[in-house]
Nucleic acid binder design. Structure first.
Lengths: 228, 228
DNA sequence: TTGCTTACATACTAAATGGTATGTAACCTG
DNA sequence: CAGGTTACATACCATTTAGTATGTAAGCAA
């Protein structure tokens, strides 16, 4: 009866089955489970238990568990990289300062227990890249996307005079992504908050070493260059 | 008969059962398996298949699979850290240059397929730290060991005048260990050899930024400081 | 309304998993 | 050499695992 009521309003108003949503539900639940316990650490049953759906739905959308993993990289993690680390820099004049700031914002905004889970991309790289070619290829694409987009911003910063002319922006982009991975990885291993300060300070020092403007808006101690 | 022959030579010459060796065999095989496929990715059966022993031997020495994992951290990985990253610096005047050099030596000396396996410590941190407290504690101890010992060398370098006086050696030690983890992690994800050069170049730049001697024996391009 | 297709739910299976029970030969102590 | 203990090997078990077979209701085209 409720059904009829709704059904008469519009031609296609009530969808008891929401195609997009079901798939997305499974994908989102899978992301959280895999993020917290690793791909090999969660079972398909674990994942569906976290949704309102069942195994039938799972295997309707994903032929195998591996295919779900691949979808996780392509449809959840890649957009997340863009969303968290690339897009926020779009409107900034100096992306270099923006990257450091973004790290601080995301670290400060995250719950401590979330921080200990590390970086979703890095987790999957460490766990799955050596043992599955499908993961390996997709994770490499995701990493290169991050590096390429970071490089784009660095080139822009270089043109604008924020980065010294002798700096190879691509190498720096590699390093920045590497630092992210190492940073989150260390936070995961050392639950010491002092780790954050130490790492942040050293990252800042590196950024200053490639920066054309020796002092940032927030100088950490004195200027680090040319005062021996 | 061979047995008798040997047995007469010394009081306890022939050991059909070698207590230490059996345990070590299992530990070594487990290390390689876990290193390549992850702790959750290998089964106890997998491990014993790689040895000449059986499941009975395994559970004689290790009460559970988790206990084996803990032993891996304490008895294999921790000594490996000292062996690979700390001891080689003992005889060097300038540990800073030594660290960079050691990275190069170990990377060059490793087979490409071994490099793609990443760092044994980092692998376990990423996989197991969030899901098991026993691993978490031991891995943290291992990381802090690495950081503390690195710091010791940096303090020595600072006293000897190789590191600038304003540098916080402990922060730098954190950063160096972080860079190792990130470095190996990236090499694992990006199988591009150019990644190594890019990362190495940026690492070198960071080291120069904390170094008191602006130019190393192998200057990468011109001096990076004070020539704007 | 009819009838076909899609989107799931339920029940099941074969294999793998961590762990145990039990047997047995090696080793030590007396 | 007798008797007990240690160091394993073998066979087994309960549970979990990815994946499948089958049932069924929703949605749609005619």
């Amino acid at each position: 009866m409720v059904k009829n009521l709704k059904a008469r309003k519009k031609p296609k108003p009530t969808r008891i089955r929401d195609l997009e949503k079901t798939r997305r539900d499974i994908l989102d639940a899978a992301f959280m489970e895999v993020f917290t316990r690793g791909f090999q650490g969660v079972s398909v049953d674990d994942i569906v238990k976290k949704t309102t759906h069942t195994k039938g739905a799972f295997y309707h959308y994903f032929p195998t568990k591996l295919d779900l993993g691949y979808a996780l990289v392509d449809e959840v993690i890649k957009p997340m990289i863009i969303d968290r680390w690339i897009s926020p820099l779009d409107t900034l004049q100096d992306p270099l300062a923006g990257i450091l700031n973004q790290i601080k914002v995301l670290i400060d905004g995250a719950a401590p227990e979330e921080l200990q889970l590390g970086c979703p991309l890095n987790n999957l790289v460490q766990e799955m890249a050596p043992i599955d070619a499908g993961f390996r290829d997709r994770l490499q694409v995701a990493l290169l996307l991050w590096i390429d987009e970071t490089n784009r911003h660095l080139q822009r910063a270089k043109k604008a005079g924020f980065i010294r002319a002798d700096v190879d922006t691509r190498s720096a982009a590699y390093f920045i992504v590497m630092a992210h991975e190492g940073f989150y990885g260390m936070l995961k291993g050392l639950r010491d908050p002092r780790a954050f300060e130490a790492l942040y300070e050293s990252l800042d020092r590196f950024f200053q070493s490639i920066s054309a403007t020796p002092v940032h808006e927030e100088p950490l101690g004195a200027s680090h260059c040319c005062h021996s």
